[in-house]
């Protein structure tokens, strides 16, 4: 009889324009927006659907200034992400979004900016960096600290090199382990924090990476004198509906899909230290 579609649950077809190999198991997909143009806030995510296989939340990785393309960086971990990492130009994936909260870049205006990324955590931070470089004059000193497992796991290599070449931004990269041909930093990304040339009293920090990394980054930043209210983290949980109804992404009282994924660190600090919350 009457049809009652749950419109928020319906993915729209998005054509794959280009696929870029980032690392052995990470691909960046460039999709044509289902409606031609679209807008998002850095830090938000979309639900990506591989036909018949399933759907996963993936943060948006594109430049917010480019409204004619939807960019996602996907690491092949499970069935759906493996299917997504295998798509070729011309094929179609399902897309719905954007969902969730974004990085509040406006809070950093006139202040120093510190970006701390671990592994695939650079993907949700890339739109933030693109956005702040577009209006670089609005911010004080800018530093990006990025840690990956090995030199082979570094994302956005060309772009990282362009960022490093700039005179108005500090970029530090570290890896957990490396062969003899690596001349850069070795060690966890939090070890780079004291070297970031930013003013703890003036900085706004944006942090994304494995939960344990965010936990310790938060602690280190506090130790350096950065107020917990000036630090933002992006949380990850199982998400299925993306609109705060299915219940899977609960993190204490928060629905990560709706109240996050970006949270003020002061708000989640205590919860980050509760195991298996």
């Amino acid at each position: 009889m009457s049809s009652l579609p749950l419109d928020w649950s319906v993915p729209r077809p998005a054509v794959v324009l280009r696929v870029r190999r980032e690392t052995q198991d990470v691909r960046t997909l460039y999709l044509r927006p289902p409606e031609g143009v679209w807008a998002f806030q850095p830090g938000q995510f979309n639900m990506l659907y591989a036909f018949g296989v399933g759907e996963v939340p993936v943060s948006v990785s594109g430049d917010p200034g480019h409204r004619d393309v939807v960019v996602h960086t996907v690491r092949a971990v499970g069935a759906v992400t493996t299917a997504l990492a295998r798509v070729r130009p011309g094929q179609v994936v399902g897309l719905r979004g954007p969902f969730g909260s974004g990085w509040p870049l406006q809070e950093a205006q006139g202040r120093d900016v510190l970006v701390v990324a671990g592994g695939i955590g650079l993907a949700p931070l890339r739109p933030l960096v693109c956005g702040l470089l577009r209006h670089r004059h609005r911010y004080g000193r800018v530093a990006i600290l990025y840690g990956a497992r090995t030199p082979q796991d570094l994302l956005y290599r060309d772009e990282l090199q362009r960022w490093r070449a700039r005179f108005d931004m500090q970029v530090e990269v570290t890896v957990d382990r490396a062969g003899p041909d690596w001349r850069g930093n070795v060690g966890v990304v939090t070890r780079l924090l004291p070297r970031a040339g930013v003013d703890p009293a003036e900085v706004v920090a944006f942090v994304c990476g494995p939960e344990v990394m965010m936990r310790f980054a938060g602690r280190e930043l506090e130790a350096l004198g950065v107020a917990p209210s000036q630090v933002f983290v992006s949380m990850e949980r199982n998400m299925q509906c993306a609109v705060g109804l299915c219940g899977h992404c609960q993190f204490g009282a928060s629905f990560v899909c709706r109240d996050g994924p970006v949270f003020r660190y002061a708000e989640v600090r205590d919860r980050l230290w509760v195991r298996e919350l």
């Binding site: 009889m1 009652l4 649950s9 729209r12 077809p13």
Partner: peptide
């Protein structure tokens, strides 16, 4: 059932599932 989708060339077409009133 929330919806059904049918393959359509390289893409797919979503059809809302009829729900019993």
């Amino acid at each position: 059932v929330l919806w059904r989708a049918v393959r359509d060339g390289d893409g797919f077409r979503v059809e809302a599932a009829p729900e019993e009133a």
